[in-house]
Structure formats: C-alpha cells, structure tokens
Amino acid sequence: MVYVSGAPGAVTVSLTVNGKPQTLSVAPSTTVLDLLRERLHLTGTKKGCDQGQCGACTVLIDGRRVNSCLQLAVMNDGREITTIEGLGAPGGLHPMQEAFVAHDAFQCGYCTPGQICSAVALLKEGRARTRAEIRELMSGNLCRCGAYTNIVDAVEAVMGAGASQEAAE
C-alpha cells in the first residue's frame, strides 16, 4: 500500500508529458489539469469549469481522451499524457490543428485545445462516420462562441483525408 498524507508537496508523481518524463511533488488534491497549468506551465490545457462539464481540459492519457480536471495527479503516476502542446506547434502543426485554422473552427480559442485533443481521439476511436456521429461524440466539448459547424467541418476534413489515404495505401 502506498500511503501519503494530505499536505501540499506530500506526494511525488512521475508522469510522461508530451514524451518528456516529469517528476513532481504535489498535494493529493492536485489535479492533472492544475499540475499541467500551474506546475509545468503547459497552459494550453484549459480550465473551463473544473467539474467535467465542458471538455476544455481534455487531454489524452495513455491515448484516451479524458477530462484532466477530474483526474488526480497522484492516481496517474506512471502514465503518459499528451496535451495540445504535444500535438504540434506553429510551423509544425498537427493535421487537426491545421484543419481548425483552415475551417475557422474557433473564435476566442479557449475551448479549442480541448476540442482538438478530443477530435484527435475521436478519429483514433473510429466510432464516428457521419456528421451526426461526429456531433454526438464531440458533444463533451462545449463552445460558447458557437463554432460547432466549423469544428465538424474540420474534423470531417481530417477524417476524409485519413480515409482517402487509407484507400490509397
């Protein structure tokens, strides 16, 4: 049994974040989201509600999309986390990031990293084929600017590109 007290800095966690090993001392109550934003200064992962009700904090943990606001860092010891910063950066954007720019799939940009991480996972999951299915499986990512139709366009474009690539192979 691993046991730690509740004090700040009481527990050491080791994580791989965007391919880079990180070892930090945190409180048991530290979430993955706060660890990313406040400790690693990876502020691309956004805090929209901190309650699992908006999706702005979506990251990939061991390849699966989850709300990082509801993940205690200590429980993710040893896991691999990919954030928006790990997908691509200006000059070398991920195809999904490119598609979001090309389709103007955002306005204020605050929900955007979560939307993109979610969309990347959506494609990997392979459960969405139609626009209706994209909409349903992206519904865990709210956008107050109302960029929804453009987001679906962007996801569809990347999905289509992937499909035609597969067909060519």
Binding site: T43, I84, L87, F100, V101, F106, G109, T112, P113, I116
Partner: peptide, 21 residues
C-alpha cells in the same frame, strides 16, 4: 483570411489572463 492568431490558439500557446506565470 484565416485568423492570424490561429496557429497560436490551436497549439495552446495563446495565453489568457489566468495563465501568466
């Protein structure tokens, strides 16, 4: 014209008020 600030926003590098260290 695609947003000139688009690449910063889609890569998580655009910084908002509560994000400056």
């Amino acid at each position: 014209q695609p947003r000139v600030d688009g690449p910063l926003k889609v890569s998580g590098l655009a910084q908002y008020a509560g994000e400056f260290p």
